[in-house]
Design a protein around this nucleic acid. Structure first.
Lengths: 146, 146
DNA sequence: TTTAGTGCAAAGGCTTTGCACACCG
DNA sequence: CGGTGTGCAAAGCCTTTGCACTAAA
């Protein structure tokens, strides 16, 4: 379960159970459950509601840690902005609406043997890939169909 | 030819042939020819050698314009940095070395019918996609094989 | 001459860092 | 208590903006 993974990640990376990290973990679990993505600032604003003194830097530090541990996925948009998203582990990619920035998980992927071929052609040791699809979601299409 | 495309892009988007734009075009043609990618700052530094008074903002403005016209491709790295690259038009993707950041063009791509399927499943009007492969290039692998 | 395009410097946004303090164990 | 983790504010980066000026047409 994702909630356990998040808590385990904090445990593994640190020596103390602090209130800020508990709050961050809780909020991330909610995001994981609802499948919503967020910016560091989103997260900070949300957390500040219940803990006004929580520092922005703390949020940045936790997010960085979780990204390094592979629990949080950084989604880059073409315009240089980016969101984060809890990634439970299964390999998947994202389809983002270019208008409202909503994100949907998709399970398209590159054929494995194609990746292998590229690896041997280029003499690269291929470690990973990221695939982003862009388009307009149903809502935005109908809203702007005029 | 790519050189013509770059010049044509400047012509189309503007009314005057200025020295800064000529210099930028020239430099981009070189990058296109050698297949090297670059940051805005790289480009600015290079141009400053021959034209010390050339402003950073001018480079930013030109790069933005060319990205919008599809002639320059912004490559996002996982760590939030990004490079630009002259893209002659043919559809392709990039394989980047996670160690030295060198970039190779590859012609892998998602099967078209998969994209279509996703579109209808998600009710998105899919407009495009970006695919990045990461790995370690031959040089870096042998250098660090120890 | 006219005004698009430029250079400069200041302002902006996001992120990181330094440091004293708090608080977990 | 001891030291990790925190909050705060300052500093850093990269990028954009405002504005007076330059130089293409």
């Amino acid at each position: 379960m994702i909630a356990d993974k998040i808590r385990a990640a904090f445990d593994e990376a640190s020596q103390r159970h602090t209130r800020p990290r508990q709050l961050i973990a809780e909020r991330l679990i909610q995001h994981a459950t609802s499948g919503t993505d967020f910016t560091v600032d989103d997260l900070w604003q949300e957390l500040r509601k219940s803990e006004p003194r929580l520092g922005r830097a703390t949020v940045y530090r936790s997010v960085e840690m979780l990204v390094n541990m592979g629990l949080l996925n950084r989604i880059e948009f073409g315009d240089g902005t980016h969101h984060y998203r809890v990634c439970g582990g299964t390999h998947h990619h994202h389809l983002t609406c270019t208008q409202c920035h909503c994100v949907v998980e998709v399970d398209v992927c590159l054929p494995v043997e194609q990746i292998r071929t590229i690896g041997s052609q280029t003499h690269f040791d291929i470690e990973g890939h990221s695939l982003s699809l862009f388009g307009r979601c149903e809502k935005c299409r109908s809203a702007h169909s005029a």
